[in-house]
Computed example of a mutant assay.
Amino acid sequence: MNSYSGTNYDRWSYEQAAKGGTLADTPINKLQHKFWVAKQKVSRKLGKEEDEHIVASDSQLDAKLELYKSIESTTCRLQFLMEQYQDRIYFLAGEENALGRFLKEEGKKDKTRAGKMMIAAGKTMSYTGQQRLAIRVPLVRLYQEVETFRLRAIKDMKQTVETMEKVRNEYRGALMWMKNVSTELDPDTFRQLEKFRKVQIHVKDSKKRFDKLAVDCLQKIDLLAASRCNMFSHALIMYQNTLVSFWDKTAKTMNHVNNGFKGYQHYEFSVIKDLATPAQEWIY
């Protein structure tokens, strides 16, 4: 092995590592590599500054990761709001139906034209409450689409990101290890040079795996964003059409009731300003 030197040695050592050789896989090397990887994880957790050039090289990936985090958080938030929205629709439809029944019952007790108006308004409110429940149908469909998107697409993306982050920590830990070894490197000392080359193998192997996963993340996040837009463009059409149909039906019903009672004389209320004359002051 001593006959190998320079670039020939680098090529040979890297080929041995790629073939599963033991040059860079000795227990000591593994332990040292794990130490620097753990140190890298701790540094990131504590928010310590990293090499600006390394951070800048991952700027495109980090920007895409921010997009992924936004997609994940807004999707979960949307699902929560849709649950609340459906509850509000149920509550509002129930209140409209209850108000409609009340107006119809009280209208039957009043034999004047006002009673007829109360009955008509009550029927309109009950009809509105029934029609409002139809909005829930496209909402359930949209909720299912969002849930499937979250449980499958986002979950798969999360696993890819976690794997990438693990490999990125290994890669940056290997870089920290190589930087530490290079500060003590003496080109005239064969053992130190051999140790440096072993560390280089770890760096090259980690970088190769990290680059592959980084490309996977970039492509998957773009696909994730496009898939979400495509999902909304299809699922929201049904909701929009149902909502427009609901307002058309209820508006026509209310206009019909309004036109049927045109010219009706409204009640004239008399406001009593004083209920009694002011009490006279006692004269002693």
Rank of each mutant, 00 (worst) to 15 (best):
I154L: 04
V167D: 07
R150H: 04
M176L: 13
M176F: 12
D156Y: 01
E162K: 06
W177K: 02
R152E: 07
L151F: 06
L151V: 06
R172S: 11
T160K: 13
R152F: 04
F149H: 01
S182G: 15
E165H: 04
N180I: 02
K179Q: 12
I154G: 00
D156W: 00
M157G: 14
G173I: 01
W177V: 02
F149K: 01
Q159I: 06
E170H: 09
W177A: 00
K158F: 03
T163L: 08
N169T: 11
K158M: 05
M176G: 10
D156F: 00
L175I: 10
M164Y: 14
M164P: 13
L185F: 02
K158P: 00
D156C: 00
R172E: 09
Y171Q: 07
K179S: 09
R152G: 06
N180H: 14
M164D: 13
E165W: 06
T183W: 06
K179A: 09
E184M: 11
V167K: 09
E170S: 09
V181F: 05
R172W: 09
S182R: 14
R150W: 03
K158H: 11
A174M: 02
Y171M: 10
L185R: 02
K179V: 05
F149V: 00
L151Q: 15
T163M: 15
V181Y: 07
R150K: 13
T148V: 09
V161A: 00
E147I: 07
E184I: 12
T148S: 15
Q159V: 13
V167S: 06
K158C: 03
V167R: 13
T183D: 08
T183P: 04
V167Q: 14
V167I: 14
N169S: 11
E162S: 09
M176Y: 05
E147C: 07
F149N: 00
A174L: 00
G173V: 04
V161E: 01
R172Y: 11
E147W: 10
E147L: 02
R168Y: 05
Y171T: 04
W177C: 08
E165C: 12
R168A: 10
E170D: 10
R150L: 07
T160L: 15
T163F: 12
N169A: 09
E170V: 04
K166E: 15
L175D: 02
S182E: 11
V181A: 11
L185I: 02
E162L: 03
V167G: 07
K166T: 14
D156Q: 06
W177M: 08
V146A: 12
V181P: 00
G173S: 00
T148P: 04
S182P: 07
E184S: 13
V181H: 08
R150M: 01
K166Y: 05
F149Q: 02
T163P: 12
E162T: 10
